[in-house]
Structure formats: structure tokens, C-alpha cells
Design a protein around this nucleic acid. Structure first.
Lengths: 137, 137
DNA sequence: ATTCAAACTTACCTTTTTGTACGTACTTAC
DNA sequence: GTAAGTACGTACAAAAAGGTAAGTTTGAAT
């Protein structure tokens, strides 16, 4: 009931949400780990890529410039373990494996993409700040 | 005009945004670095914390359980360099320094918090998936 | 006189993450 | 018959991130 004491941007959360909120600040909360998976260097890019549709392993590798096979495999596995990515393997030779988002994966990916979009769109503002600080430094 | 070919979640972007989109997939794009700053282990937590208001260094340290002084200082510096965090030092002894979000910082932080909120609120779903996979593994 | 507190910085060391290179199994292309 | 493509696993090495502990500065409290 003392919601108004908080920053206005914080209001709009239900009581349940309020109670859940703040757990990330706790050291041992598993939410930190899940968050680390989706915000990991390659996790972010994989999620955004898969929002566009289904991709094969090597297609993803070509799309996400700079990932090693090892890292891509590892990232996909952790996202699969969290239930964000669906792996479909067709038992043919050469192997054919498709990756897509689960419904839950889409939900996170949308948020991740919004963040990435903001960064891309506002990148020039950040670069301006950085440039301005170099001068005054 | 062929927006409909894309995943519906992707539409709603302007042409300019469409053109900017995809730069993150390029290896050397600076947006990747900025993204790494805000999605870094401690960066996420600092941004969310500062959405609640202004904090002093040691207050942040107590709030974000598990950060070392070294990491907190480093994180704050990179966020300041990107123009997301405003550092205000009062020349008194002992030192008094306040950290808050710049307008630009609030914009990112809101997105970061939405992502973190989703994770916290849906954590149980993730844990259920993880538990189910352990059985079948 | 000694301790404490703030907000760091620095040196040193450990842990985690990431990359490189190679191996695998099988088939198609040259 | 040799190379290439597919989707990885694995060993080793380098790089990056992170932690620990100590030092700094100055005034106020004990």
C-alpha cells in the first residue's frame, strides 16, 4: 500500500510480483543462473536469431558471426535444458538438426530482442557519450 | 512491404530499424559490446537496482549480494562510460558518492528489468522443465 | 594514539569462459 | 581417392572475469 514511495517505473507490479522481485539480488537464487544463460554473450544472439524461425546448426553458425562450434553447441544445450530451445534431430546422413524456440523461449526472446533493439537503435547515443568523455578525460 | 513473410513478432519495426537490425550479428559491431555491458552478470543487477532510485556505493554493495568491491566499481565505471549511470561525488571526508541512472540509463534499465521480471516470475516453469529432463536423461 | 568509515585502487591469484584444433561417421561431389 | 559438408565431442590453451586482501586519504569518534 506504500507503492507510491517507490519509483513510478516500479509500480504496476502485482503483490505476488513484488514479492518475487528482488530475489535476483539474492546470491544463490537460481533465477540468476537462468538470467545468465539468456543474457550470455551467445545466448542473446541465438534467441534473437531463432525468433526469425527455425535454423539448422550450421545456419546459425553462419548467421552469428564469430561463434565457434563449441560455444554454439554449448549455448544451445543450456537453452534447451532451460526449456527455451527445441532441438529436433532427423536421423539421416549427413545429420540434420533443427533448432527452434519453444513457446516459453519465444516469451524470453521477445524481451531479449527488445533490449537488443534498443541498444542497436540507440547505439549512436552511446557512442556520442563515449566520444564526449574521451575529450574531457 | 513483405513484412508478413517475417515472424509476426518481428513486424512493427520501421524500415530504418529493419536496416539496423542484424548488426548485432556482425562480429565487430560495437553494439555487441554495449549489450555485453548491460547484460553482464553485475550490470543487469546494478541497472535494476538503480531503477529504484539513487544509491551510494556501499548501499549497492549490500543490496546486490555477492558483488565484490572490485567488480561493483568496474561495472559502475563501464555503465558510466556508456552514459547509463551518473556518478555524483560530494567532496567530503569520508567520501560520499551517489549513483543514479541517466535518462538513457532508465530506458535500457526498463528493458533489462522486464527481462529479469519475466525470468523471476516464470522461474518455476524453467525449473519444472529442468526437473523433467533430469528424469528422462 | 588508535580505530573506523567511505569509496575506491592495485597486486596477485583462482575460476570461468571462450577459442583452436582435431576426431568421428557417413555420403555426395569432383 | 580425396575433399567437403553435417553436427557435434573432446583435449588443450589462452583469455577474460572474478575474488581476496591490502593500501590510500582524511576527519571524526573512542
Amino acid at each position: 500500500m506504500k507503492d507510491q514511495k517507490l519509483n513510478p517505473a516500479v509500480s504496476g507490479l502485482t503483490l505476488t510480483e513484488q514479492m518475487q522481485r528482488g530475489q535476483v539480488f539474492a546470491e544463490r537464487c537460481p533465477s540468476r543462473q537462468v538470467l545468465n544463460h539468456v543474457t550470455s554473450r551467445w545466448g542473446v544472439l541465438v534467441l534473437i536469431a531463432l525468433l526469425e524461425g527455425t535454423y539448422r546448426f550450421s545456419e546459425l553458425r553462419r548467421k552469428i558471426t564469430g561463434v565457434s562450434e563449441r560455444m554454439l553447441a554449448q549455448t544451445l544445450q543450456s537453452l534447451e535444458a532451460d526449456g527455451f530451445v527445441l532441438r529436433t534431430a532427423y536421423p539421416v546422413v549427413p545429420p540434420h538438426v533443427e533448432y527452434s524456440l519453444t513457446p516459453m523461449g519465444e516469451e524470453v526472446a521477445v524481451r531479449v530482442r527488445e533490449l537488443a533493439d534498443w541498444v542497436e537503435i540507440n547505439l549512436h547515443r552511446v557512442l556520442e557519450v563515449q566520444a564526449a568523455q574521451e575529450v574531457s578525460a
